[in-house]
Simulated scan of single mutants.
Amino acid sequence: MDKFVESEYLDDRCWSHTWEFHLKQSLPYDPLRVGMISAIIPIPESKAVLIFAEECVYRSESNGLEVLNQLSAAQCFPDYAIMSACLRSLKCFGRYKFPWICPYFTLFPIESPERTTWINPLMVYCLQVKNNIYYAKMENGPNLVLPLQKKAFLKRADVACSALATVRRDLFRFSVKSCKGPR
């Protein structure tokens, strides 16, 4: 396992040199250009967020939920409020803190959806604990300080993955039949 260096982890409650590094390399958020998102993290003492996507880092003056609503509108993904109502009505995905889901990935909120870190559970490489504080090492994106315990984090990640699997099952039922030779 890699050596644990606490200063390499982003904490949405505390400014650090890691924040400065990511802010310097970030681009303005464009919902039509962003690919799979690893995490959306609120910048400390600001309404703005950093969006960590597979190809680069974006910044937005909007909060995380507004960023997701912009992405949904731009790329024709389901609206968060409607999807949350659907998940709530199924009564098997909990009662609050619903994930944001599109056909390709999902993000779940750590705290209340308006001002929180949104994490893609498929991009979490491992969880670590040091001095009773949990840290998430990400596959593609920043390493994060988690403001909750491992059990709660895993429960939210499990709900997000289950909801994504449910949506994917319904969306990708149709396939293209290929021609098996010249006609």
Rank of each mutant, 00 (worst) to 15 (best):
P147A: 07
V67M: 04
K97Y: 05
F105N: 04
A74P: 03
Y58C: 11
S112P: 00
V49A: 02
P113N: 07
A85V: 00
L65I: 11
L68D: 04
S46C: 13
F108S: 07
L127S: 01
T117P: 06
N140S: 15
V57H: 03
I133C: 05
L122E: 15
K137I: 09
R115V: 08
C102R: 03
M138C: 13
T116E: 06
L50S: 03
E54Q: 10
S112N: 12
E66N: 12
M83T: 14
P142T: 02
A152L: 09
L68P: 03
L90R: 14
F93T: 09
C56L: 03
L146T: 06
W100I: 02
Q70R: 13
F93N: 10
K97E: 04
N63G: 05
C102N: 15
P109W: 06
E55T: 15
L122S: 11
K151N: 12
Q70N: 10
A53E: 10
S60L: 10
V67D: 01
G64N: 06
Y125G: 00
C102T: 08
V129Q: 14
M123E: 10
N132I: 00
A81S: 14
S89Y: 12
A73Q: 14
E55P: 00
D79N: 15
S72N: 04
A74K: 07
G94L: 08
E61V: 14
V145M: 11
P44D: 05
S62H: 11
S60P: 10
R59D: 06
Y125H: 15
Y58P: 04
P113K: 06
A81H: 15
A48T: 00
L107H: 05
K130Y: 00
S46D: 11
C126W: 00
A74T: 03
P103K: 03
S84D: 02
V49Y: 01
G94R: 06
G141M: 06
W100K: 01
K130D: 08
T106W: 05
L50V: 03
A53M: 06
Q75M: 08
L87A: 08
K130Q: 13
W100E: 02
Y80R: 05
L107P: 09
G64E: 02
P147H: 09
A48P: 05
A53H: 04
K91L: 02
E61S: 14
C92W: 02
W100H: 08
Q70C: 08
Y104K: 14
L50D: 01
Y125V: 00
F77E: 04
A73W: 10
S112K: 14
S62M: 14
P113F: 07
L65R: 13
M138S: 10
M138I: 13
